[in-house]
């Protein structure tokens, strides 16, 4: 006696062989087959005849696989890259939480400073994530233009990182200001770190405005890249500045200048690349 489930199982095995790693598509085709068989049985056909007719109407696994093979490549690599960035960010969030809580328990950090340090570390890191998405986007676009699916994925990752950075940097600045008021009697000091944070907050707003209003791919990429540089300056700039201006640190100064010059050259190269038409570096 004909066993429909067994026939479907055999068909799935054959589809898996023709289209490996595409279980969801095979699920969809299986649903289609079941619908087709059900319709034919309801109109009076025997199940085995309905199965054979439905299978013939669907096409052979090889023919279906060949048609699917003509589709543009999936965004698997890009998705993986975004997952790596998100994973690193989560690891950083856990480490930052652990670090500030340890400081709080040891009595080195007040609750306000815990909030300040945690949100600044994660807010700035989110901006670095925006920068890394921008760098990936610029480099990949230089070799081949993005598919619409890639554009959507990049745009979503970009927007999510920028919003996260904006919120956390804002929280970090406000908690820092309140802490200043409690300890120094004023909300704001002309402190280089706080000024850097404020600049970054403004930059974040500009990036989001550009993403949502102008919707310009190129300017988003350039802004993300420059935001990454600005974050670096806001974060380690004050420390570098104090070390290079200290007496007797000529080696540090030279190294800092070399590092800054290299990074600036790299950023300039990437900015030029972002402004070029897509696929300019493709091997022909």
């Amino acid at each position: 006696m004909f066993d429909l489930e067994r026939a479907i199982g055999e068909w799935r095995a054959s589809m898996n062989a023709s289209m490996p790693g595409q279980a969801e598509t095979i699920d969809e085709l299986e649903t289609h087959l079941r619908d087709a068989v059900q319709q034919r049985v309801q109109s009076g056909q025997l199940t085995d005849a309905a199965w054979k007719a439905s299978l013939q109407q669907l096409g052979t696994p090889q023919a279906i696989a060949s048609e699917f093979g003509k589709l543009p490549p999936p965004t698997l690599l890009l998705t993986r890259a975004m997952q790596v960035v998100a994973g690193l960010y989560i690891v950083l969030a856990v480490l930052a939480s652990f670090g500030v809580l340890r400081g709080f328990v040891a009595g080195r950090l007040s609750s306000l400073l815990v909030v300040h340090v945690w949100s600044i570390v994660l807010g700035y890191s989110a901006m670095l994530a925006v920068g890394s998405v921008a760098i990936w986007s610029i480099l990949s676009r230089a070799f081949s233009d993005w598919t619409p699916a890639e554009t959507r994925l990049l745009s979503r990752s970009f927007r999510l990182s920028a919003i996260t950075s904006l919120i956390l940097t804002f929280v970090g600045l406000v908690s820092g200001a309140i802490w200043f008021r409690q300890t120094q009697g004023t909300l704001w000091l002309l402190d280089l770190r706080e000024m850097g944070g404020l600049c970054l907050l403004g930059w974040n707003l500009a990036v989001l405005w550009n993403l949502m209003r102008l919707r310009s791919e190129r300017s988003s990429l350039v802004m993300g890249l420059l935001g990454c540089g600005l974050t670096g300056l806001a974060w380690i700039g004050p420390t570098l500045l104090s070390s290079v201006t200290s007496y007797g640190h000529s080696t540090t100064m030279v190294m800092t200048i070399v590092a800054l010059a290299s990074l600036t050259s790299l950023a300039a190269f990437l900015v030029v690349l972002a402004l070029l038409p897509p696929g300019r570096l493709r091997f022909r």
Binding site: H32, G59, A63, I64, E67, K70
Partner: peptide
């Protein structure tokens, strides 16, 4: 329709947003 050929078209349209 050759039923199985519809799905690549649907997937392409989905990829194109």
């Amino acid at each position: 329709w050759t039923d199985g050929m519809l799905y690549p078209v649907l997937h392409r349209l989905e990829q194109q947003g």
